[in-house]
Design a protein around this nucleic acid. Structure first.
Lengths: 206, 206, 206, 206
DNA sequence: AGGTAACCGAGACGGTACGTCACGTCTTTAC
DNA sequence: GTAAAGACGTGACGTACCGTCTCGGTTACCT
């Protein structure tokens, strides 16, 4: 994910073609995202309300409803930059090393507040197909792709077993992490974070 | 878990000690659980409301609040029998065979409506520590224990790697399944159900 | 009108028969009516909002919606006592004298704030048949009846023309008053109030 | 009233003096009035919204706000021709005959949809002094003047009582009609229309 | 047998948030 | 300068549930 938000046009760069009418207020947009971030320090996604965001942002509710389909979309955009993970398939690593580094980075990101937000979003997604779709597009799919690529590399290099289809391999790698995330208690603690990558690589090994 | 509901005293059998006053109405209890089950065929846990249950059951809201702390607890009790998995560590199987059978049984159970309910409960649990606790006690812990035992057996027999601590091994085995469950799309389809146990066993192998 | 409000049962005196459930809160009812009266000193019926009443009364909106179908009904009940006109067909007057006295009383009542409220209600009634019905039942019909009776008396006594059917006679007597009321400018001023009864009686005379 | 709209300058004929800039769009003006008329076949003045007019007319809201102070003004202009009553004080009639004919014409006009619109406007006027003023200028005053003139003629001819000041006489003649109009039920039915002029004349008679 | 205590249904209560509508204003581009 | 387009903050709508409360009535036990 290249940090493009869902609600802003992909590119305005030179097309001009500005349609008539008062343009969207960037100030309001920022106020909304900022208010969302601030509210999220004290409440869960579940307890967050559009009304509260509007009030805190000094903005009409309609302005929010005009640009985002639901509160999850607002949260996603509000945390887009923070949660965006630049999955550079760096340098001269072996696939195993690369996988370990990616896992490490993912778990580090899921510790603390961001992890709670991701867990909340995944939870919200369970009762609304559209939200699940949003969550996948914004967050999950790009992770899956990155890990999928690394696994494919490992299979080509012979490090990882050819027996696994990539989808399942990704589930096997990421499943335990999100399991821990949602278990909350204990969760993604230091011990787990230290041990898990080794085990994950072993699980994939040829 | 032997189908003991959280809200009924463990044993009434002969202990006497009956306190004064009108006793709890079994009829109401059953009506509530039944209404919950019927409502759940058309709505998610999220959309289920105490008010709807009370209305459908022909019962006062207070009666529900008196005996259950929240709607999740009602749902859990309503589906306790159906979701209870008798994890008999049967006969003369090897630990691998046993693990495969357990995984099979679990995935079969998580297909269809029950899977949705479990996913919903896990989702609900994300925004309420008490609910998470309930969910773990009612559902997750017993599964983890059963799988944990099997893994220990496998480690003793030498089939499974000693390198894994049991907790993490359970996460590695169950994580991918709940990952699929919550991804919904595709989900725990036939293909996954057929292939996964083999891969899981491979992942644990010494 | 005997000062029976629409929302309270006509008589609780001995019927008992209290239905189950928490009884209606008299305190809330009074708070709502009081808040309505206070708000009406500064705003028109049109600008009055249920939300403002609820807030000022310290009451949930639902409590209002539970007992009154719309804001006009609340206003009507709030001003029921003040606007109730005890139309005693007193003593040893001739019908003409009686008519003059009734007209006088009516106009006196329609001066000042109450007149504005009645005009507002009549206005509100124009866009909602149910409201018109409420207004007629609460206010207009009892006035019409009272005047109608007086006119009938006058026809029997020979003072008033037999040519008039009562309905039309009432329209002829009351129409000019409400016309003035709604014209607002000048309105029911002293001059009009002094002269009109004489003219009205002349209009009806045989 | 000779069909001069309030919002168009009385005369553009040759005065030149055209100010700079794009001139007012006659097409838009007509589209707005037309849309208003069409909307009014299905909704009351109360339920009519500027937004709906703008949308239906394919016009910006600002264009409406620029030229009319409120929706009542738009409605008034939209129905100006239809409601305009050419009050010719015709020929060789006696004042009584003339009065009867005027009453007849007025009541005929107030039957059907136009009556509802007038009632709505009068209602709207109750909560806004400016609107009342508009209504009087556009509609009520010209009627009052016409009837006032006829009454004066009748007083000069000796048919009508000198005791009445004209203003009050007009209220006495028109009041009952608008009373019926606003009562809605029964309203200005055939029976009333047939009988009322006779009674009105009697009421004014010397 | 009578009293006491906890239950039950019903349903009203003060709240919070929902998603929508229309208001009247403002800010663009286009003519 | 006017026009269409359409975004903006505001405020009210009527509804759904929340969890609590207050009734009249019921059903057990414990004197």
């Amino acid at each position: 994910m290249q940090n493009q938000t869902a609600s802003l046009p992909v590119s305005d760069t030179e097309s001009s073609a500005r349609s008539a009418g008062r343009p969207r207020s960037e100030a309001s947009r920022l106020a909304i995202l900022d208010a969302t971030r601030r509210l999220m320090t004290h409440t869960s996604v579940r307890d967050l309300s559009i009304e509260a965001i509007a009030k805190k942002a000094g903005v009409g509710k309609t302005t929010i409803y005009r640009w985002w389909p639901n509160k999850v979309a607002v949260v996603i955009e509000a945390f887009a930059e923070q949660l965006d993970m630049h999955m550079l398939t760096a340098g001269n690593e072996t696939p195993s090393e690369n996988l370990a580094r990616q896992l490490d980075r993912l778990m580090r990101q899921l510790r603390g507040r961001n992890g709670k937000i991701i867990a909340d979003l995944l939870a919200e997604a369970q009762s609304d197909a559209k939200v699940l779709e949003q969550f996948n597009q914004f967050y999950m799919q790009s992770r899956r792709n990155a890990f999928g690529q690394t696994i494919l590399n490992g299979q080509k290099s012979g490090e990882f077993s050819e027996a696994l289809n990539t989808e399942m391999a990704v589930d096997m790698i990421l499943g335990p992490i999100f399991m821990r995330l949602m278990r909350q208690e204990a969760g993604l603690d230091e011990a787990f974070a230290a041990e898990y990558p080794v085990m994950a690589i072993h699980a994939l090994s040829a």
